[in-house]
Design a protein around this nucleic acid. Structure first.
Lengths: 213, 213
DNA sequence: ACTATGAATTCTGAATACAAAATAGTACAT
DNA sequence: ATGTACTATTTTGTATTCAGAATTCATAGT
């Protein structure tokens, strides 16, 4: 069995994102490096490396002499992120092998239909949603693009926990995913791309009201 | 006068990108942190922070225990980067205020026409090209998108110096820029977007042959 | 001659130490 | 009471040190 040997900075980054998903950090608050490092049981060095990475992804922002803090959320930024991811995922779809897309269509449909039945924990929903999108893009040969999508989505994690307790949109989300899957099965790529864009636009609208300004 | 007070890591990052433009580093070679830090007159800490940032942007890659190295160039990756930037710039254009686009149209046209007369140094050409694209996107309200474009373009800098000494394509590049500007002046956004995409696709084709495999 | 083994060296990854900037707090003057 | 100057404390930014992994090199064995 291959024992995991990854740099601490990556493990720390993952842990911070996990905590972000759980809503542990409130956006806009400063990070105390020494305290956080102690809490994680590491030194400040790899922690800072992780923070710098996250700042590059837009999860954090840094000010000279003032350290890092979780970038405050805003409707404007969330809209911006959605616009970007929608465009990137559309591109990924267009670059994918149509044959492969048709092949994963049924699986995408199945996943969309068994979308957690609203009772599931928020984290499960997120994970399920991510899984669906990952599968959707699995045929894209542009590796840089996939990395980029992952990176931009990291920036959206600050918003994920705001969705908690909002059950109604879940069905619509599942519905829209079905629509995408069906278009892919039918081999209609443009329709699938449009449906995907709609999904992002609608998802954005649904979220907007829940973002405090 | 406001004296510059930026973190060392940012200054180092800029300096490394400058050197990359000059072709100082040959892609694929490892970086010796201690040597480079000494050469720059800084300690390894802020240097490593800059390296990590650049790795996040795809300029460098890191392997556990083996440090950083300039990611080797490849036709595949260059194609991928072009696809991404083309999509992002197109999106930026679509999000821009049409009125503003029409207003900067003439300036874009002027800049395109006075494209350095092939005698200029390679670096001047790059700078001029960047300036043109920056102006093109200047009306985009999506700040995250602009940051992202900058970041992805950083990854393309590894390819910039490969273009050196290739004069012929310059006129075509200028030509294509004119085409975009004219479409904008005419208020035909879809045409401008198409022309811009063409520009990226053609620019990619032109470069392909010069990338060693 | 070639491979394998192991010591020596070099380099990275991480922790610690130090310096400088920012923040908080206090005394003092108005 | 309010504002200002000054000190103390905290926190970041950078440098240095330490530990361990990777590489190199030499040597022994086949």
């Amino acid at each position: 069995m291959p024992i995991e040997r990854r740099p601490l900075r990556e493990q720390i980054r993952d842990e911070l994102l996990r905590r972000l998903d759980r809503g542990d950090f409130s956006a806009g608050t400063d990070i105390n490096e020494a305290a956080l490092a102690a809490e994680l049981g590491v030194s400040r060095t790899p922690l800072r490396e992780a923070l710098i990475t996250l700042a590059g992804e837009g999860v954090l922002e840094s000010n000279q002499g003032r350290g890092f803090r979780f970038a405050p959320v805003s409707r404007k930024e969330f809209r911006e992120l959605c616009e970007i991811v929608a465009a990137l995922e559309s591109l990924a779809l267009e670059l994918s092998d149509p044959e492969h897309l048709r092949k994963i269509g049924p699986e995408l449909l199945r996943l969309a239909r068994e979308f957690p039945d609203s009772v599931a924990a928020q984290q499960d929903i997120e994970r399920h949603d991510d899984e669906w999108h990952d599968l959707l893009l699995s045929g894209c040969p542009n590796e840089r693009l996939l990395d980029l999508v992952t990176s931009v989505k990291a920036g959206m994690r600050r918003y994920a926990h705001l969705r908690a307790g909002d059950d109604a949109p879940l069905e619509r989300e599942a519905d829209e995913h079905c629509r995408v899957a069906e278009s892919l099965i039918a081999g209609d790529l443009p329709a699938a791309t449009r449906a995907l864009r709609d999904n992002w636009v609608n998802g954005m609208e649904r979220m907007m009201a829940r973002i405090p300004e």
